[in-house]
Amino acid sequence: MTENHTTSKQPGILTPLQRLQEKFSDKIIESHVFRGDETAVIGLLNLRSVARFLKETPEMDFNFLMDLTAVDYLFYTGGRVQKEFRFEVVYHFFSLKFNKRIRIKVPVDEKNPQVDTLSDLWASANWYEREVWDMFGIQFKGHPNLKRILMYDQFEGHALRKDYPFNKRQPLIGPIN
């Protein structure tokens, strides 16, 4: 870990975030680095171009989408940042070749929760996006098979949204208890 830290600070070698800032300087809404973990917040419309850049630049080669999830900031009051949008979709990329990580966040509006799919770039995005659709009701444009993956088809609503009643039950058989 320490080695990574020092190499990334060597002059002439850019960290993935620095490369991203170089290329998309006007499109990054916000970015921060915490103990070597780099995060960039980008707009909805730039997601695919940024993702493609991360994957296809040979000096970064982010070939592994480790995680894709979402956060619902409906009742969010704490923290330093006032959230403008209700949802945030979070992508964690990893480069097996360079042992580097980067986190990309995309704010999503409540009225039109739609994000472009990444399932054609990283195959693992397919099921992650289905999970985010199932739990948060965020749609992924261009996804080949966007249906529920954890809950059953008869389930109504999206269980991890903060306004889903915590004690609402939708059993397939048996009493509503």
């Binding site: 306004d163 009643p165 004690n167 208890n177």
Partner: peptide, 16 residues
Amino acid sequence: QGKCSTEGKIKHIEPA
């Protein structure tokens, strides 16, 4: 014995 969680507990929270 469990408790009946439907008794007057369900309340739908409206988004802010």
